[in-house]
């Protein structure tokens, strides 16, 4: 499935043992350790908590490489690759996408980048 025909929002899980919502992961619920869970879709709208620009990224990545810690509606946090030129300020609204095994984000308004 390509990013353009993906259903709206992001795949997530609701823990069966506590109120936590979390993104797909190999392990159990990050809060209570519970293993029962129900699939949910959550909004891809998020707010930037912190963002930075790596001048010396790890081998295999081009400089400058930007990453951000963002919070989705419902309080789920996720680390994303920031796909536009300028590093976002904390508090900015963004849209998160999941493709090719990684989370990426771009400004909530504005053109959609090629993923």
């Amino acid at each position: 499935m390509s990013a353009s025909d993906a259903p709206d929002g992001l795949e997530a899980f609701a823990c069966g043992s506590c109120p936590t919502l979390y993104l797909p992961r190999p392990g159990p619920c990050p809060v209570c350790g519970g293993t029962s869970r129900t699939p949910r879709r959550v909004s891809a709208e998020a707010t930037v908590l912190a963002a930075t620009e790596l001048s010396t990224p790890a081998e295999g990545w081009a400089a400058p490489h930007r990453i951000a810690l963002v919070e989705l509606m419902g309080g789920i946090r996720v680390l994303v690759e920031w796909t536009t030129d300028r590093r976002p300020e904390p508090g900015v609204g963004v849209r998160v996408e999941f493709a090719d095994g990684r989370y990426r984000a771009r400004p909530a308004s504005g053109p959609r980048p090629e993923l």
């Binding site: 990453i67 680390l79 904390p90 095994g101």
Partner: peptide
């Protein structure tokens, strides 16, 4: 999941500092 977006030790430390 954080390596997958190109996280590095200084990168995450920067987010903590910020």
């Amino acid at each position: 999941v954080e390596q997958a977006v190109g996280a590095t030790m200084p990168g995450l430390a920067a987010l903590v500092a910020q």
